[in-house]
Simulated scan of single mutants.
Amino acid sequence: MQMFFDWLSTLQWERLFPELLGKALGFLSGFAASWFLLFRKRLNALQRMQAGDSDDFIFQMHQLTPVDDASPATGSSDKYVLLFRNVAPKTTLNDLYDNIAVRDEINKLADQTTLSNPILQTDGTLGFEMLNDALGHIAGLLATTPFERQTWLFAMTCEDRQFVRKKCVRCFLIRPADLQRFADWNWCRDHLSVEKPWHWFRVVALHRIACVWQEEQKLAAEEAKSSRDKDMPLVDRQVRHDRVRMLSVGLHDGERPIDAPYQIDWSQHLPSLEKMGLPLAPATPPTDPPSDPT
Rank of each mutant, 00 (worst) to 15 (best):
Q2N: 14
Q2M: 08
M3S: 15
M3H: 12
M3F: 09
S9N: 11
L11C: 06
W13G: 08
P18F: 08
A24P: 03
L28R: 14
A32H: 07
F36I: 07
L37Q: 04
F39M: 14
R40S: 11
K41Y: 12
N44H: 13
L46W: 12
M49N: 06
M49D: 08
Q50M: 08
D56N: 14
I58F: 11
Q60F: 14
Q63P: 01
T65H: 13
S71D: 14
P72H: 09
T74W: 08
T74E: 11
S77E: 04
V81H: 01
L83E: 06
K90A: 10
T91R: 13
I100W: 09
A101V: 13
D104T: 11
E105R: 13
D111R: 09
Q112V: 03
T114M: 02
P118M: 04
G124V: 08
F128D: 05
L131P: 00
G136D: 07
H137W: 10
H137L: 06
I138H: 04
L142T: 00
T144Y: 14
F147S: 09
R149N: 06
R149L: 00
E159L: 07
E159T: 00
Q162T: 09
Q162S: 11
F163P: 00
C171A: 13
C171Q: 05
I174R: 02
P176T: 05
A177R: 14
D178S: 13
Q180C: 03
R181E: 00
D184M: 12
C188Y: 01
H191L: 04
H191W: 01
L192K: 00
R202P: 03
V204G: 02
A210S: 04
C211V: 13
V212I: 10
E216T: 01
E216W: 00
E216Y: 02
K218E: 08
E222D: 06
E223C: 09
E223D: 15
E223S: 10
S226R: 08
R228E: 13
D229L: 07
P233M: 01
V235D: 12
D236I: 06
R237E: 15
V239D: 10
H252C: 13
D253K: 05
R256P: 03
R256V: 08
I264K: 01
I264V: 13
I264N: 05
D265L: 01
H269P: 00
H269T: 05
P271T: 01
S272K: 12
G277M: 02
L278F: 03
L278W: 01
P279M: 09
A281V: 04
A283N: 10
P286H: 05
T287Y: 04
P293L: 09
